[in-house]
Design a binder for these strands. Structure first.
Lengths: 230, 230
DNA sequence: ACTTTTATTTCGCCG
DNA sequence: CGGCGAAGTAAAAGT
């Protein structure tokens, strides 16, 4: 098996798996993808998931006996066996890929949505500063006042807020308390909370507002449609 | 899943995704797999998971502009955009696959095995009800009586039972206690226990029965062989 | 190294 | 259609 190569085999095969569970798949035509990290995927012609697989760094053995071409992929106690009942079509792909995958926080969009519709955080909320610097090296996502004139800071998270998120917001609140003379209200706006984060809310006097990136993108989409009419 | 054309494109591309979240992937060579059910997978040369994807029944549009070949895959609010910066190599695979995939040794199978051989949990155990609802939104895997006529509930886990599993079972026991008037015995049947789970057993009055998916699948296999003789 | 938590989870079942 | 639970979940983060 040459290095840096992705191999795709296509043909009629049976697949069996023994390990944490067992599975059997009778004869049919599938794609078998062998990546250069020695991970193996067996894909049927439909569905997102591979029907069987083996993770990276597996031991891969090829055997031929008569018409049959057999691939054994083992990883500790896990064994995947693919038997091609007639010779598969084989395609080789030399893939160079060094790019970094970046999952973008849509927190920017959440902020935009809340600026457009402050009631997403709380009825009567009036935001007035974005990305307000705090504590030498930090920024609070959004700062404003609530309906009673209390200062209110909002931190956005596109995934469930973690314990660390709560702690960070807490340090911001403490800094702002020193700066303003009294303690601002703090709201973490996120689609959820990890268990630990939930238990920390009361302890640090931080409030939670459930806000999903999905809601926010819908708000923004509605705004764009509205803009088109004006 | 009778017959299907699966298309594999390979070449230098950038990938972006907008939907529940957002992602960006700079230029690099990948495999793009378009299945017959209009699901799309973008695979890098390493790793089990596709870096980006779109599920079955997506809307797929192809556009060419100059050197660029663009694929837009949309599914409701989700949009995946693949831009090939130079023409990709394209391979077509006609795959016929009608076989039935069979998986053994799930939690479901553990339950089946115990119903066939209740002594796997305990001598004299008589199971009565499967998946009995409890507590508005929960279900206890198996409910029956022990040799002394005490109600006994069994929860199956195919991996080592966790602290969370113990807590869940505890809440079920408390609910059933309210419902039945006295506290049922509770057994967690799993191949093992995490350290924390072990320390919680006595505390919450829950019993542990070591039961592996392997044992269970052997029991079921023996039953199948027996059926063949009758 | 082990446990816990997350995920564009996917997938299936059941109401 | 939504909500919940299982998955050979895999992968990442916390302990």
């Amino acid at each position: 098996m040459a290095k840096g190569l992705v191999v795709v085999l296509a043909g009629p095969c049976t697949v069996s798996y023994e390990g944490r569970a067992s599975s059997r798949l009778g004869e049919g035509e599938r794609l078998v993808i062998i990546k250069r990290d020695r991970s193996v995927l067996v894909h049927r012609p439909e569905g997102y998931e591979p029907v069987n697989w083996q993770p990276a760094n597996s031991k891969i053995d090829f055997t031929t006996s008569g018409e049959e071409f057999q691939i054994r992929v083992s990883n500790g106690p896990e064994l995947l066996t693919i038997i091609f009942t007639s010779p598969p079509r084989i395609e080789y792909f030399e893939l160079r890929d060094t790019a970094v995958f970046e999952m973008y926080a849509s927190e920017e969009d959440m902020k935009k949505a809340v600026i457009a519709r402050p009631d997403l955080v709380e009825e009567g909320f009036k935001p007035f500063v974005e990305e307000r610097p705090v504590r030498k090296t930090g920024r609070v996502d959004l700062l404003g006042v609530d309906r009673h004139g209390n200062i209110l800071v909002v931190e956005f998270k596109k995934n469930s807020a973690t314990a660390q998120d709560i702690l960070q917001l807490k340090t911001y609140v403490e800094s702002l308390q020193e700066e303003f003379g009294n303690r601002p209200r703090a709201v973490i706006a996120a689609p959820g909370l990890t268990k630990k984060a939930r238990s920390m809310l009361d302890l640090h006097g931080i409030e939670f507002r459930c806000l999903t990136p999905r809601q926010c993108s819908q708000v923004l989409e509605r705004m764009r449609n509205l803009d088109r009419y004006l």
